[in-house]
């Protein structure tokens, strides 16, 4: 995985991800892959067994994966969530905000452009899966 970018301190999990169907079929896998259109909520009963959830983006305009990541974070999942596939620099800020903390883009990402993109906005308007403080909170303490 040449293009892997991680925003975590732990070691990269290298067990190959299995499909949701295989996982739910009583597998002992610790790594699952969610295809676009699959319901991330199916994993909620098993989150403490999982170390890596990979969420695929077949096209960068397909935004289903953003909801999948947030659903897992809202359920308390602390393991790695990796965006794979058609992942481009201009979408990665919102992916980070939705709880993705690693990226396996099909094409390499320019690191300077990524750094600029992730640092672009000092303020956000709403809570998400990251720890950014929304401006309404800054306004009212």
């Amino acid at each position: 995985m040449d293009n892997l970018l991680r925003f975590r301190d732990d070691e990269a999990h290298d067990e190959p991800a299995v499909s949701i169907d295989a996982f739910l079929g009583q597998s002992n896998a610790t790594s699952v892959r969610i295809e676009a259109g699959e319901d991330a909520r199916q994993l909620i009963p098993f989150l403490d067994r999982l170390a890596l959830v990979e969420i695929d983006f077949p096209r960068f305009r397909d935004g289903r994966g953003y909801s999948s990541a947030r659903i897992l974070r809202e359920a308390g999942y602390k393991g790695e969530i990796r965006a794979s596939g058609d992942v481009l620099v201009d979408q990665m800020l919102f992916m980070r905000r939705c709880g993705f903390d690693s990226f396996a883009p099909a094409a390499p990402i320019d690191e300077a452009a990524l750094e600029a993109a992730l640092a672009r906005f000092d303020y956000v308007y709403q809570n998400a899966a990251d720890d950014a403080v929304p401006v309404w909170k800054l306004r009212h303490g």
Partner: peptide, 14 residues
Amino acid sequence: RQATTFHPEFSYLP
């Protein structure tokens, strides 16, 4: 307007 501006989950909608 503020709540829906740059909403990270809902910026690549169908």
